[in-house]
């Protein structure tokens, strides 16, 4: 099986770029390289990953400045042509600012940065990012963010639900969608969201932090395995 080509975008202030690179290259064994935000070349990537961090210090608004990086033009074209784009945490925030995904992020409901393991329920297993999980399965993956309280207008939420765009929701250990499990206050407990075309996923939790058992969970591997499966199933 030939290796997939993963491009990990580096913005000034990205800080999960090395982690994502490590998991894709050393844990998943894929061909992985960095993409510098000032360049104009995706280096024939099969999948582009926008990693977590504080691009441009999160000044102004999370992701608001990064969306103007030179490379974003190529990423938008790539996404419009059906290329796979995964945005993790700050990467999700950038995808919202780019309007590749609908909605916006507010501050966490407790107005504090939150870093801890949470449980996610897989709502849609028919996507390139979740096909190796099963619907309703509960994953243990950590979050680490200040602005992860997902918001969208009621009309948008209706549309998102109608199109089955919610991929992950915050749940308790048993998979119940509760207010208590909704750590940051997101509408509909939304933790991961895909576009209508099913090729752009944004998620607040960090799958790269849950991809080695030594770190307390392997569940994040499902996301990366799904992407690999998506390309190799035929």
């Amino acid at each position: 099986m030939s290796k997939l080509r993963f491009g990990v975008v580096v913005f000034p202030g990205s800080n999960c770029d090395h982690d994502t690179f490590h998991v894709l290259k050393d844990v998943c064994g894929q061909d992985t390289f960095y993409l510098w935000h000032k360049d104009h070349d995706l280096n024939n990537a099969d999948c582009v990953v926008l990693p977590g961090g504080f691009s441009y210090g999160d000044y102004l608004r999370s992701g608001a400045i990064a969306r103007f990086s030179p490379l974003m033009k190529e990423i938008q074209e790539f996404a419009h042509e059906g290329g796979l784009v995964l945005g993790i945490c700050n990467g999700f925030q950038v995808l919202l600012e780019l309007e590749l995904l609908p909605g916006a992020m507010l501050r966490n409901k407790n107005l504090k940065f939150l870093c801890e393991h949470v449980h996610l329920k897989i709502e849609n297993d028919q996507t390139p990012f979740s096909n190796q999980g099963q619907k309703n399965r509960v994953l243990k993956i950590p979050i680490a963010h200040f602005d992860g309280n997902y918001y969208a207008s009621p009309g948008t939420i209706e549309e998102i639900k109608a199109n089955d765009q919610i991929v992950f929701r915050y749940a308790d250990q048993e998979g119940r969608i509760t207010e208590e499990a909704n750590v940051n206050g997101s509408i509909e407990n939304i933790a991961g969201l895909i576009n209508k075309q099913r090729n752009v996923l944004g998620m607040m939790p960090h799958p790269e932090r849950a991809s080695e058992s030594l770190l307390g969970s392997n569940d994040g591997r499902i996301i990366f395995k799904s992407i690999i499966h998506h390309f190799t199933k035929n």
């Binding site: 982690d19 504090k112 940065f113 680490a144 770190l215």
Partner: peptide, 16 residues
């Protein structure tokens, strides 16, 4: 934990 959860204590994925 009220203190520690405000810190990103997992970034760099080495915290065993």
């Amino acid at each position: 934990q009220w203190v520690f959860r405000q810190y990103d204590h997992m970034v760099q994925i080495n915290t065993a």
